[in-house]
């Protein structure tokens, strides 16, 4: 199986992100890493690809984004594609999807495209669907388990109530949840081999896209902090507490 994984390099996943004067996340010169959510799709890809398959990691981003590819390659990915182009700064979801879809199209004979459910920095959660649409491929989201049998994709799709069993033909675009697997640690050998693995760096024109194709149509006008949640009620009297809890749960129609 040949699998393409869409990965993202995000600034400082464990710290507090900084916003620039353009109301966008500061990405330049900030420490970053492979989006922790993407480690699950890389892991899923490595498991599905098996010993004879190939896992191609694709990212779009500034120079530092190559770090996301290296991390995925050190986990066991086979090759990386980095779309690096100044004109992509400030790209919105649609532009990013056009770029990534163009890269995927160039991967001859791919069977499956995997991505995280949403990025840990932007949280739009819409990119994989846009890529699927542009590639005219079926899209299954929130996969907590992905299997391929007889050329058919079988997915357990996480829902609020449990999970759905979904089947669809290949190739397809699938988003993988953090519950799908436990990502492996990169091994020392993997880290040392990563730099020997093929890595393509492509520009917008290499992908056959025009300046119009990569022009963002969204503009961030301003930023508002999310309203803080109201503090909960604290009941300190142990005599009173059980009754009040039951009352609350009854009102909420939970019990």
């Amino acid at each position: 199986m040949n699998i393409v994984v869409l990965v993202k390099y995000i600034p400082n996943p464990e710290g507090t992100p900084e916003m620039g004067p353009d109301h966008r996340l500061k990405r330049e010169g900030v420490e970053g890493a492979l989006d922790p959510g993407d480690e699950h799709s890389v892991e899923a890809a490595l498991q599905l690809a098996g010993s004879d398959g190939e896992v191609t990691l694709v990212t779009m981003g500034p120079e530092a984004a190559v770090g996301a590819l290296r991390r995925g390659l050190s986990m066991g990915g086979h090759k990386g594609v980095h779309v690096l182009d100044d004109s992509l700064k400030g790209a919105d979801v649609l532009v990013t999807a056009r770029v990534l879809a163009a890269v995927v199209k160039r991967q001859a004979g791919f069977d499956l495209v995997l991505a995280g459910v949403e990025s840990t920095d932007g949280y739009t959660g819409t990119l994989p669907m846009a890529v699927a649409e542009l590639l005219d491929l079926p899209n299954v989201t929130f996969a907590r388990k992905v299997e391929v049998a007889d050329g058919t994709l079988k997915v357990e799709r996480q829902t609020e109530a449990g999970y759905d069993e979904v089947e669809c033909p290949l190739p397809a675009v699938v988003t993988v949840t953090a519950g799908a697997n436990e990502p492996r640690y990169p091994t020392l050998k993997g880290i040392m081999q990563a730099k020997q693995k093929p890595m393509d760096t492509l520009s917008v024109s290499d992908l056959g896209l025009s300046a119009e194709d990569v022009k963002a149509t969204q503009e961030v006008m301003g930023l508002e902090p999310v309203a803080a949640k109201e503090a909960g009620e604290v009941i300190e009297d142990p005599e009173e507490a059980p009754g009040r809890v039951v009352e609350f749960l009854t009102k909420a129609k939970v019990i």
Binding site: E28, G29, V30, E31, G32, P62, E63, A64, A65, V66, G67, R70
Partner: peptide
């Protein structure tokens, strides 16, 4: 823990904290 790339990018701006 930044990559060399991030470091190079940072080199043009103000010194890192």
């Amino acid at each position: 823990m930044a990559t060399t790339e991030a470091r190079r990018a940072a080199g043009t701006g103000s010194p890192a904290a």
